[in-house]
Structure formats: structure tokens, C-alpha cells
Write a protein that binds this DNA or RNA. Structure first.
Length: 502
RNA sequence: GCGGUCGUGGUCUAGUGGUUAUGAUUUCGGCCUUCCACGCCGAAUACCCGGGUUCGAAUCCCGGCGACCGCACCA
């Protein structure tokens, strides 16, 4: 009963109590793999999204943001390959038990079954007279258990699916965006939104969920210019940790997954051809710069070159940004060089022209795709900025970077006296008018209020005390040091701005 | 999906067949006039769901749901 509580459990307890996140439909027992964000979690999430947009969309006049729907007709996923490949092969017995047949075959016959077609698997079932592991009844044909959520649309119940990634909308609207914006290669199309995957077993809070949020960009590039990335110079000296395929093979020989990484600059990664092209190298550096703002130390961020068997045949190289969590290294961003696979597939599927003309020549752009998992990044921030209670502070708190914190400051009248409250309210309103996110709290003893503010990572607390009435000054308490400094009331709101905070 | 552990107020928790179901904290009301959850009084709120065993179930059994850990899975 009194198991040692894991970091994940501790973080989740605070999240529940303080309205960061909680299970969806919790009052009905919840549904595995679904979480809602509460008021505090939503603010942090909005801040994260804002930071992302600022760096990747607003700062680049060649990146256009769209907002696509989550339900798309089945032809889209026929063309993209998800209907055929984004599945687990399963077999059903006469009593209706469904079994992962590839796993069962590997277990019973001791042969690798991954990548075999449904027919091949069905033949193996016949040949070896494999029966249902639950009840012993014969197994029927092998079917694909889709990892996509299906639905039906309209009076004729036309089959459709919830998108398993945001990317497809970008390829579908590619021609519209390009012509509407008169975009020239290279350009990017960004999208922030929800995606859905019917995971077999969701795990670890919001790290593996069935409904999740992504921030993606598809960069469309002239295949002849893959080594001319417009922001390469900006990121070329950024240092990254790379786990090479060579290193993974070496580790595999020792049957270990404890990879060591090579530290090198973006420029080196490109010049020594650790990455397929300059665009990919630049994107990795771009992401390191982004992560510097999130309070996650660089030492626990690495890029892993995905092994060939982990990537689809059309991939020109995938690099996952992985973060070390309390439960191991986990992908939070997938970076994929997809060549022209997506546009080609949809040209074939739709019979529409999706190539564009460059200097009189028809070009099907290549695609480099950084795909950020919002929920996973948020959880990484929670776990890595969490500070458990210790001797120096009797409560746990979050050391959120100021521009991610749910509020910039909390305004506190030290005493419940009308004169103090009046001044506190003034500061509060003035700060709000200046666009600051501030909270007002006059309930309970002062230490309690500091603790409450720390617990959701508010970086500054302004306390109005009796001295304020004499000399128009108030104290600002710094969350990280718990120390206080006194400032004149006039200057206080501007001190609270995140840009003024280290 | 398999195996292990577990499910009691918002949160943490006591409770091995009969209890007004423990305590803390939180929240609310009042007092206190206060600088780091540690002044006082009062109030509110809980046995995950469904079956079964039993005179009687939070407690035992079965099933479901959910959580954590391990394995598998994660184009």
C-alpha cells in the first residue's frame, strides 16, 4: 500500500490537486489513454504553443500555418498507406477472442513474424494448427486490427478516420497553400492540432495517450537544394548529442540499450554526413535552441538516428529527439526526411497534380518533417522542473521558466486590511492592463500563499505590507531563491514581465 | 495484450467480516492582524463499478474499469 512513490506519481498528484491535468471522464472511472488539461495546465500548454509559434512560424516568412480537420475520408489513408500498414495483424477464434497473431507465432514457432503479410501469417496458422491461446478453439483468418479510430459520416455512413498524425492535412492542402500564398520553394506549412491512435496500452500519464496534440511543420524543398537551408548559419554552431546507428549496433552486440552519444555541432553533423542533408542538420539545431527555453537540461536531450527497421522504406533518415525521463529515454519529437513519398502517394491516390513548376521544370518537392509531441514535451517540463520538498522548503514546487509559468506573478496583501487590499488591487489591475498574467490571493497566512504560488511555479510574488502605506514600496519575492527585495510601486509591474526575469 | 502491485473525503492516509469509517491537510464560515503551508473555534466532503458468499462486506470471492511497475507494442 505504501509503495515508494515514483516521480511520475508525485508529479501526477500535484497535477490533479492543482488543476494541471486529470483523467478525462474521471467521474465515470476514466478511459485509459485520455487526459484533460485543467486551468493551470492549459495556461502552461498555451505558453508552450506560443513559444513554438514565435520561433518556428512568426520568425519565418516562408512558413505558413494552417488548421486542418481531424476527420478525413478513408481514401486519404488508403493513399498515405496508413490503412494498410498502420495496423497490427490479429486473428479471431470462434468464440470471439482476438489475438495478436504475429506475436503468438513468434512465441510458439520461434521465428520472426514482423513484416509478414496477413496471408503469410494465415498460412502459418493453418500449417502449424495454431489455436486460440485463451480457449483453444481454432483461429479464423488473419485480419488487420487498425490503430486508427474509424467513424462514419453522413446519411450514407461513409467511412472515415480520425487522423493518426496532423501531417496529412498539410499534404492534402499543399497545392492550395502554395498557390494562395504564391509560395516558392523552399517553404514550410505548420499545423498545431490533435491526432488519434488507438494504442494497445497507453502508459505513463500523458506520454502515451490515444488522443494527443502535435505541432508539425512540413518543409517543402527542391530536391536539388537539400543542402541549402536558410537558417543553417543561425544554428550551425549549436551543439547536439547524437546517437549514431553505429553506436546502436555496438550496443546491440552487448544486448544493451544503454547508448552513448556523440557531442558535435550542427555544422559537424552535416559535414561529416551523420545526417542526410543540411536541412535535417539545421532542424536538429533549431530544436536544441527551442528546448533551451523549456527548463530541460541539454545533457538529457539526444537525437537518435532511427535504425532502418524502425523507419519506413521511403525514409531518407529519421532522427528522434529523445529526453531522459524517470522511466527511461522517450521520443518527444520525430524528425523525418520523407523524400517525395507523401506528395507522390497523394498524386497517385487523387489523380491530381501536386508537383510545382520551378524555372519551367516540374518538381515534386522533398519533405523534411519535424513533428513535436505537445503532451510529451509538457510532461517532460513537469518532470524536469519539479522540485520535491526538502529541509529548506517544506513544500514541492515547479521551477518553470518565466515564459512558461501559468502566471507571471501573484499579488498578496499581507494583512486583511482595506488600505492594503486597495493598494494590492491597484497593482493587480495595473499589471493586468499591461498584459501580465497575475493572480490575486488574500486568503490565509502569508507563508501558505507563497507555498500555493510556488506549487504551480509562479516566479514572482508581490507583497503589500504596512510599510507600503508609508513609502509606496512593496516586496517582490523570488520563487527560486525565496528571497525578497523591496521596490517602488511604480516600477513593480514592469519588473514582473518575463523578459525582465532571468 | 500478458504478469505483478494497488484502488477509502479535493489530496495523503488508518482501518483483516459488525466502527457514529481514523488522522492530517485542503475547502467553507468565524476569530486572530500575521512575511515563508507550523494561532484558535466550527462546518462540509470518502469506501472505483457490478455481481456473489454472509444475518451482516470498505474488509472475503468473481468480473469489469482505472493507476503504477515489468514484458510486448508504439508504420
Amino acid at each position: 500500500m505504501n509503495m515508494p512513490r515514483s516521480l511520475l506519481e508525485e508529479v501526477m498528484t500535484v497535477s490533479l490537486r492543482r488543476g494541471i491535468l486529470y483523467p478525462s471522464a474521471e467521474i465515470y472511472g476514466g478511459l485509459a489513454g485520455f487526459y484533460d488539461f485543467g486551468p493551470i495546465g492549459t495556461r502552461i500548454r498555451n505558453n508552450l504553443i506560443h513559444l513554438w509559434k514565435t520561433q518556428f512560424v512568426e520568425a519565418r516568412d516562408y512558413v505558413y500555418e494552417i488548421s486542418g480537420n481531424t476527420i478525413l475520408p478513408s481514401q486519404v489513408f488508403k493513399a498515405s498507406g496508413h490503412l494498410d500498414h498502420f495496423t497490427d495483424p490479429s486473428a479471431e477464434c470462434s468464440k470471439g477472442h482476438v489475438t495478436r497473431i504475429d506475436q503468438l507465432i513468434e512465441e510458439l514457432l520461434k521465428i520472426p513474424a514482423e513484416g509478414k503479410s496477413n496471408d503469410e501469417l494465415a498460412n502459418l496458422v493453418m500449417e502449424h494448427k495454431i489455436r486460440c491461446p485463451v480457449c483453444g478453439e481454432p483461429l479464423r483468418g488473419v485480419k488487420s486490427f487498425g490503430l486508427m479510430f474509424g467513424t462514419n459520416v453522413g446519411g450514407d455512413r461513409r467511412q472515415a478516420f480520425l487522423r493518426p498524425e496532423t501531417a496529412q492535412n498539410i499534404f492534402l492542402g499543399f497545392k492550395r497553400v502554395q498557390t494562395a500564398m504564391r509560395a516558392k520553394l523552399p517553404f514550410g506549412v505548420a499545423q498545431i492540432g490533435r491526432s488519434y491512435r488507438n494504442e494497445i496500452s497507453p502508459r505513463q500519464s500523458i506520454v502515451r495517450v490515444r488522443e494527443f496534440n502535435q505541432m508539425e511543420i512540413e518543409y517543402f524543398i527542391d530536391p536539388r537544394s537539400l543542402n541549402e537551408c536558410p537558417f543553417f548559419d543561425m544554428v550551425s554552431n549549436v551543439s547536439i548529442n547524437l546517437v549514431t546507428r553505429e553506436e546502436q549496433n555496438k550496443a546491440a552486440e552487448k544486448s544493451s540499450t544503454d547508448y552513448s552519444s556523440t557531442q558535435l555541432t550542427v555544422k559537424e553533423a552535416f559535414e561529416k554526413q551523420f545526417v542526410p542533408n543540411q536541412w535535417m542538420a539545421s532542424i536538429l539545431g533549431d530544436e536544441m535552441i527551442f528546448f533551451q527555453q523549456l527548463g530541460i537540461p541539454a545533457e538529457i536531450i539526444r537525437f537518435r538516428h532511427m535504425r532502418p527497421e524502425e523507419t519506413p522504406h521511403y525514409s531518407g533518415g529519421n532522427f528522434d529527439l529523445e529526453i531522459q525521463f524517470s522511466f527511461g529515454w522517450k521520443e518527444v519529437i520525430g524528425n523525418a526526411y520523407r523524400r517525395d513519398h507523401d506528395l507522390q502517394s497523394h498524386m497517385k491516390g487523387s489523380q491530381k497534380e501536386l508537383s510545382i513548376e520551378v524555372e519551367g521544370e516540374k518538381i515534386t518537392p522533398h519533405v523534411v518533417e519535424p513533428s513535436f509531441g505537445i503532451d510529451r514535451i509538457l510532461y517532460a517540463i513537469l518532470e524536469h522542473t519539479y522540485r520535491p520538498k526538502d529541509k529548506s522548503r517544506g513544500w514541492s514546487w515547479f521551477q518553470f521558466p518565466p515564459n512558461l509559468a501559468p502566471y507571471h506573478a501573484v499579488i498578496l496583501p499581507l494583512l486583511n486590511r482595506p488600505e492594503l487590499e486597495e493598494v494590492a488591487k491597484e497593482i493587480y489591475e495595473k499589471s493586468r492592463k499591461m498584459g501580465l498574467a497575475v493572480l490575486y490571493d488574500d486568503r490565509g497566512r502569508i507563508g501558505r500563499r507563497y507555498a500555493r504560488a510556488d506549487e504551480i511555479g509562479i516566479p514572482k510574488a508581490v507583497t503589500i505590507d504596512p510599510q507600503t502605506l508609508d513609502d509606496d514600496t512593496a516586496t517582490i519575492r523570488n520563487r527560486d531563491s525565496a528571497s525578497q527585495t523591496r521596490h517602488s510601486l511604480k516600477k513593480i509591474p514592469s519588473f514582473l514581465h518575463p523578459s525582465k526575469q532571468k
